[in-house]
Amino acid sequence: MLFALILLPNITVGIFRILKGSTAADRMMTAQLFGTCGVAILLLLSAGMGNPVLIDIALVFALLAALATLTFIRRTWE
């Protein structure tokens, strides 16, 4: 619980990098850090709230983490 609370401001502070982000890649990287933070928060919440379904949501997050960056590299950033 407490640990998840510590991770959430991590995301909030990271938004500054998206807004400032000197290159497009920086913004994309921040989104990826958010994904990983989200996975960690979900895992901690799943232990704290005692709900094993949240691990499945974290699994979906982890599976789709690469998708946005791969699309960005192949399609957007040229």
Binding site: A31, G35, G38, I57, V60, F61, L63, L64, L67, A68, L70, T71, F72, R75, T76, E78
Partner: peptide, 17 residues
């Protein structure tokens, strides 16, 4: 998680191009 965070992102990125 699957649609909002996972799929619409790539969809928009491909549309940007």
């Amino acid at each position: 998680a699957a649609l909002g965070a996972g799929l619409t992102g790539p969809l928009f990125l491909a549309a940007l191009r």
